[in-house]
Design a protein around this nucleic acid. Structure first.
Length: 258
DNA sequence: ATGCCTTATTTCATAAGA
């Protein structure tokens, strides 16, 4: 089984590249973030032609998450149970059972700047995610929380820690909130970089950052031990970050022998 | 070469992203 996660930065703007990538990579299930479309506008027919069922949860202009699956789509939960809003709940989580695997597609709030209301919202959202995932762990042995966590787990996960010293994504409270999620019993599935030393998954569009490999690892796969033990390969598909009209994030692809 | 920001919208400017 092949699963993947990808922040597409608008599923409509990315549709030609998404369809090409789905044909080439052929994942059984994919978690998408920042779809940026209301449910009615999701290109379900287009991905359906490639054999995917869709569970989407959209807001419109901002946020939006989805799970595409070729291997079944059951017990869909839209939204984060018990999660905070800003001020209203946003479309940042969807969960579904695909085949024998429980998947969560999450888009953690950005936080904007330390101390900002959005930063406190981010921490509260991560705490609610921890609680909701902990509750779900009782129902699924093979589970993965996948998506754009907007937190770099360690200093090695940003190209220059000094640049981010006063920024979100690296502060101790954010890392502690991420660690609390992991400590519910999850394994950080570290993907291979296909080039260079660090498996970055995001590179700013500006200043040629991708081409200088000035990136961050903020798209993560947190899997239960039963699922992590089945991993045969995991990699960042940096090819998808190249060329005309890419997302600013690259997909993370995980192969499993179940 | 991989190439110097992009997205949707209350659109020709703005907010947000990280």
């Amino acid at each position: 089984m092949r699963i993947a996660t990808w922040n597409v930065n608008s599923v409509v703007a990315r549709l030609p590249r998404l369809l090409e990538w789905l044909r080439d990579t052929a994942p059984d299930a994919v978690c998408l973030q920042e779809t940026k479309i209301a449910d009615a506008g999701f290109p379900s027919a287009e991905v359906g032609e490639l054999g995917y069922q869709v569970a989407q949860h959209g807001d419109g202009r901002w946020n939006g998450v989805a799970i595409l699956s070729k291997v079944g789509l059951a017990d869909v939960v839209r939204g984060l149970p018990g999660g905070p809003g800003f001020p209203d709940p946003e479309a940042r989580s969807v969960a579904a059972t695909c085949g024998d695997v429980r998947l969560w597609s999450v888009y953690v709030p950005n936080g904007r700047e330390p101390g900002h209301d959005h930063y406190h919202y981010k921490l509260a959202w991560l705490a609610a995610l921890r609680d909701a995932v902990a509750a779900d762990l009782g129902t699924a042995e093979r589970l993965a929380v996948m998506g754009d966590f907007n937190v770099a787990p360690t200093d090695a996960d940003v190209w220059d820690p000094a640049v981010f010293a006063a920024s979100t994504h690296v502060t101790p409270p954010e890392r502690a909130a991420l660690e609390a999620l992991r400590a519910t019993g999850l394994v950080d599935v570290l993907p291979r970089p296909l080039k260079y030393d660090h498996p970055f998954t995001y590179w700013d569009y500006r200043a040629g950052n991708f081409h200088k490999n000035l990136g961050m690892r903020i798209d993560l796969v947190y899997a239960t031990p039963a699922l992590a033990d089945a991993v045969t390969d995991a990699y960042v598909d940096r090819e998808a970050r190249k060329g005309k009209g890419p997302s600013d994030h690259a997909p993370v692809v995980v192969d499993l022998a179940l």
